[in-house]
Design a protein around this nucleic acid. Structure first.
Length: 505
RNA sequence: GGGCGCGUAGCUCAAUGGUAGAGCAGUGGCCUUUUAAGCCAUUGGUUGCGGGUUCGAGUCCCUCCGCGCUCACCA
C-alpha cells in the first residue's frame, strides 16, 4: 500500500482541513455518553406508555451508518457496540447552518456524539431528537459498504464487502460493516467461556505452559523454529500442550487444562490455519471411557450455555449434541467402510497391498500408521456427521497412549467426529516411563530423518515420568473447528479473527 | 507443492478482439417524519504487476503476485 489517497479520501481529508480551519478538532480527546443505543430504546419503552411520559435526555455515541438529508431536516443511523439507533435533526431546533454542517462535514463511517431527547417518529422508530452533536472521529477511508436496510430489527445488507481476501486482510473493515461476522466472534468468545466454566465446574485447574519450547512434542507435526538471541538457543513454537500438562500431573495436580494456541508448520486449507486454538485437559485416575463421557457432557453443556439448545445445523445437516454419542470401534468401522480388517494387515506392505486390491490409492513408502490415517480421513471421517467416537487405535500412530489390556498392538484412544470433521482426540495416557522411552526410540527409528511424524526424544519428560505419573486420561480439541461447527461456517478463516494470509508485497 | 478458476471505480458487478459501463457511495442542487428516501446534474479507471501476439487486448498467450476451490499433508 502507498499513501496515495483515492478521490473519496481526498474529499474527506479536505473536510478535516475545513473542520480545523473552523476551530473544530476532528479527533477530540473526551467523550460524553449517557446511554448505549440499546439502553436508550429500553429507557424510552419503559416510560412511553405512562400517562405523562417523562422526557428522557440522552447522549449517544456511535459510527454513522446511514444519512438521509432532506433539506431542512436530516435522518441518520448510528451504530455502537450494541446496536443501531436513528438520529433526527431539524432546522427549527438547531438552525439551518447546523443541518448543513452535519450534511456536509459528516460522512458515513465517522464517529459522532449526539444529544437530545428520545422520541418515536411518525413511522414508529425510536430515535434521538438531536439538540447538539459533535465529531468524535473523522473517517478518511469510506467503509466498504453500500446501503443497508433494517427489516424487523434485522440489518439487511446490499452489496457489502464480499471479497474474501479483502475481508481477511482488512478484518477491521469486515467487522465494521458485517454485523454477522461480529456475531461469530461473540459466539466464539461465549464458547470458550462455556468450556472454561465446564472445566472449572469439574474442578480442573486452568494453567499456562510454555509456547516457546526447546523440544517440541505431543503431536505429529512440523514445528515453527525460532531463536533466542541472547541465550543462543534454538526454540520451537509448541505443536501441543501435552507433555507439559502431563508433567503437571507428576507435580501433584489431579486435573489440569489449558486453552491456547498451537503452531504447526504445515499446509493451509479451509480447516487448517498455521496457528490454531486448542483445549487440552489431563485427568488423573481417569481412563478414556471416562474422558468420552466427559466429552459428551462438555459439548452438551456448551450448547446449552451458548445456544440454549442442543440441536444445530451444520452445512445443511441437522446435528444433535445429546449424549450419548455413537461409538464405533475403529477396526470395525474400517471393515464396514472399506472391507479391510487392519488387524489382518500388521505391516505397511500387507495393508498397502490390501488397499490396492480395493482400488484405494496408496502413497508409496507410507508407514502403516499413515495408511490407516488415510483410510480414516478418506473413507470414514466424511460420513461421520452426527457426533461419533471412533475408538481403539493402532499403537503405531499413538506413541503417547496406553495399550489395551491383552492387545499390545492397539491403544485406548478415541477421536470424536462431528459434521464430517475430526473434532477431538483423547486417550488413556501412557504413564510407564520405560515403555514411553521405548516408544520414543521406536518413533525415531521407524520414520525417516526428515519425516515430520518422527518424534524427538524428550529426556526431561521421561525424567518426569520416572518420578511417577498417575494413571490418567488426556484430551485435545480444536476450538476453531468447534466454533465452525457451532456457527455453521465452512472455512476456519471465518472463525479466526486474523487468519494467516500470504504477504502481498 | 500439484490441478482448476478468479483479479475491472471506494463497494457489488457488466463489457461478440474495436471509444471501459451500471447501481450504490462521492460531489453540486431541490426537498421539514425519512429509513436501500426521492428527483436533477456530475466527478471518478495505468482493467493485480511485467512481457508477448495483433492495425487494435479488460478480452488471446507467457512470467510473476495475490485470492478461492480442490488434491496432497495435517487438527
Amino acid at each position: 500500500m502507498s499513501n496515495e489517497y483515492s478521490n473519496l479520501e481526498q474529499v474527506r481529508l479536505e473536510k478535516i482541513e475545513e473542520l480545523r480551519a473552523e476551530g473544530i478538532e476532528p479527533y477530540p480527546h473526551r467523550v460524553e455518553r449517557t446511554h448505549t443505543s440499546v439502553e436508550a430504546v429500553q429507557a424510552f419503552e419503559a416510560v412511553e406508555n405512562d400517562e405523562n411520559p417523562e422526557e428522557i435526555q440522552a447522549t449517544l455515541v456511535g459510527r454513522l451508518r446511514s444519512m438521509r438529508p432532506m433539506g431542512k431536516i436530516s435522518f441518520a443511523h448510528i451504530e455502537d457496540g450494541h446496536g443501531r439507533i436513528q438520529l433526527f435533526f431539524r432546522a427549527n431546533d438547531i438552525g439551518k447552518e447546523q443541518i448543513d454542517f452535519f450534511n456536509h462535514a459528516f460522512d458515513l463511517g465517522d464517529f459522532i456524539q449526539a444529544s437530545g431527547r428520545i422520541f418515536r417518529t411518525r413511522t414508529g422508530e425510536i430515535s434521538i431528537w438531536v439538540e447538539s452533536f459533535r465529531m468524535l472521529s473523522k473517517a478518511v477511508t469510506p467503509l466498504p459498504a453500500a446501503k443497508d436496510e433494517v427489516v424487523d430489527g434485522e440489518v439487511i445488507q446490499h452489496a457489502t464487502l464480499a471479497d474474501p481476501e479483502t475481508r481477511f486482510r482488512q478484518r477491521y473493515a469486515d467487522l465494521a460493516v458485517n454485523a454477522d461476522v461480529r456475531k461469530i466472534f461473540r459466539t466464539r468468545a461465549a464458547i470458550v467461556r462455556a468450556l472454561q466454566n465446564f472445566m472449572d465446574d469439574n474442578e480442573f485447574l486452568e494453567v499456562e505452559t510454555p509456547i516457546l519450547q526447546p523440544i517440541y512434542g505431543g503431536a505429529a507435526a512440523e514445528p515453527f523454529v525460532t531463536h533466542h538471541n541472547q541465550l543462543k538457543q534454538e526454540l520451537y513454537l509448541r505443536i501441543s500442550f501435552e507433555l507439559y500438562l502431563k508433567r503437571l500431573l507428576v507435580g501433584g495436580f489431579e486435573r489440569v487444562y489449558e486453552i491456547g494456541r498451537d503452531f504447526r508448520n504445515e499446509g493451509v486449507s479451509f480447516k487448517h490455519n498455521p496457528e490454531f486454538t486448542q483445549l487440552e485437559f489431563y485427568w488423573a485416575y481417569a481412563d478414556y471411557n471416562q474422558v468420552m463421557e466427559l466429552t459428551e457432557n462438555m459439548l452438551a453443556f456448551v450448547a446449552d450455555q451458548v445456544f440454549g439448545k442442543r440441536t444445530f445445523t451444520f452445512q445443511g445437516h441437522e446435528i444433535n449434541l445429546d449424549p450419548p454419542w455413537e461409538r464405533i470401534e475403529l477396526r470395525q468401522g474400517l471393515i464396514d467402510a472399506t472391507g479391510i480388517d487392519i488387524n489382518q494387515h500388521m505391516t505397511a506392505e500387507s495393508l498397502a497391498a490390501a488397499m490396492k486390491t480395493k482400488g484405494i490409492e496408496v502413497k508409496p513408502d507410507s508407514a502403516r500408521g499413515k495408511l490407516i490415517d488415510a483410510l480414516i480421513s478418506n473413507h470414514l471421517e466424511p460420513n461421520l456427521i452426527q457426533p461419533t467416537f471412533l475408538y481403539n487405535y493402532p499403537r503405531d500412530i499413538s506413541p503417547l497412549a496406553k495399550s489395551i489390556l491383552g492387545d499390545p498392538t492397539t491403544v485406548e484412544r478415541f477421536e470424536g467426529f462431528l459434521g464430517g470433521m475430526e473434532l477431538c482426540n483423547a486417550f488413556t495416557e501412557l504413564n510407564d516411563p520405560l515403555d514411553q522411552e521405548a516408544r520414543f526410540l521406536e518413533m525415531g527409528r521407524d520414520y525417516a530423518e526428515d519425516d515430520e511424524e518422527r518424534h524427538p526424544m524428550d529426556d526431561d519428560y521421561l525424567r518426569a515420568m520416572r518420578y511417577g505419573m498417575p494413571p490418567n486420561g488426556g484430551f485435545g480439541m480444536g476450538i476453531d473447528r468447534l466454533t465452525m461447527l457451532l456457527t455453521d461456517q465452512h472455512s476456519i478463516r471465518e472463525v479466526i479473527l486474523f487468519p494467516h494470509l500470504r504477504s502481498k508485497e
